[in-house]
């Protein structure tokens, strides 16, 4: 199938269009056209039968609508035609800090299945670094950094496409706002990603989320009724499995009600690159390397030392103890000193 043109769209029967491009239904429905009612008509017939007053009321401009329809179909075709080109690595090439001093590294490569922490005081430039990655900077942002994907200059699509963003974000302040059940919500997300076998994917997400959360929840629970831990767990499982973005940025995850180590494992198992902006030692030390940001620039890159790894197991032990106590309190038990 080649590129779809406006004249094709105008004269082909809607039924034929839907057979050739099943996803076109989304476009028609969202633009107020009932595909069932107009199966045997072409778009041209559809416009012809519209009352001019109706067109005026609903702000329908046939030529504009057809151009957009063609854009939509062609974008979807190229989106679906892409054989999951996996992002194997991203490379950061140095720029400069706020005072113009060059950054002190030659190149920084992050591969999939890797966790890298980002540390530095508030306002030091962590968001700008992420901004550079998300925008696939080419020496055209305030820091002068460049980003390579799979060691090559990235495709422009990473900047402008709405369905393909490089970075997905998970942060402390995020909440669910839709008034839907867990199942309905995941179905909606899967639909927007054009997933065909939704049922299986949804079941898997719920299973993984329950695996991360302290307390289990059902598919029919309204998402706004989930506890903090459950929401966090669902967000992580959903992002790991359904989000198309190859890079996940985690901006602090709260300790309560969620197994953070399992959460990171899940993200890595889904072949994600994980960036973590955090000063929580349990999380920050989980990365093999950490980027230190100072005055808007990357000041240095530190490899997690053996000593730090030992410290990590100590604090993890402590963390587990606290989690157990929390669990006991939740279950109405008493705490004992051993």
């Amino acid at each position: 199938m080649g590129v779809l043109t406006v004249p094709d769209l105008r004269n082909k029967k809607i039924d034929t269009l839907l057979t050739d491009y099943p996803f076109a239904e989304t476009f028609l429905v969202n633009n107020g056209i009932d595909p069932e009612k107009f199966r045997d008509s072409s778009m041209e017939d559809y416009f012809r039968q519209l009352d001019p007053e109706h067109m005026e009321d609903h702000a329908i401009d046939p030529d504009h609508l057809l151009t957009q329809f063609a854009d939509f179909v062609n974008q979807m075709l190229s989106f679906l035609g892409e054989d999951n080109k996996i992002v194997e690595s991203i490379t950061i090439l140095p720029g400069h800090d706020k005072s113009g001093n060059p950054e002190n590294f030659t190149e920084f490569v992050i591969r999939k299945n890797e966790i890298v922490s980002i540390v530095g005081p508030t306002g030091s430039g962590k968001s700008r670094l992420l901004g550079d990655i998300e925008w696939a900077a080419q020496n055209d942002t305030p820091t002068g950094r460049s980003i390579l994907i799979n060691k090559k200059t990235p495709d422009k699509k990473w900047r402008y496409s709405s369905s393909e963003k490089l970075v997905a974000q998970l942060s402390q302040n995020m909440n669910f706002v839709m008034d839907l059940s867990v199942f309905e919500f995941l179905e909606l997300h899967a639909e927007s990603r054009m997933i065909t076998d939704r049922e299986t994917v949804i079941k898997r997400i719920i299973k993984e989320a329950n695996n991360l959360a302290g307390e289990k929840f059902d598919p029919d629970t309204p998402i706004t009724a989930l506890s903090g831990g459950q929401s966090r767990a669902l967000m992580i499982a959903d992002t790991a499995i359904l989000s198309r973005s190859p890079i996940i940025l985690i901006d602090e995850i709260e300790n309560a009600g969620i197994d953070r180590k399992k959460a990171l494992k899940l993200l890595l198992a889904e072949e994600k690159i994980v960036l973590m902006a955090t000063h929580d030692p349990v999380l920050a030390l989980m990365g093999n390397r950490r980027i230190v940001i100072k005055n808007g620039g990357i000041d240095k890159v530190i490899e997690t030392t053996e000593e730090e790894k030992e410290i990590l197991s100590e604090i993890e032990e402590l963390d587990r103890k606290v989690q157990n106590m929390r669990e006991k309190l939740r279950n109405g038990e008493k705490l004992t000193s051993e």
Partner: peptide
């Protein structure tokens, strides 16, 4: 206001916007 809703909601919302205005940069 993407900082206060979930990643999934951001993705769904953006895809809805895209379906009514595919030509726009979002």
């Amino acid at each position: 206001k993407g900082d206060i809703v979930s990643q999934a909601e951001r993705e769904v919302f953006a895809s809805r916007v895209h379906s009514v205005n595919p030509g726009a940069t979002i």
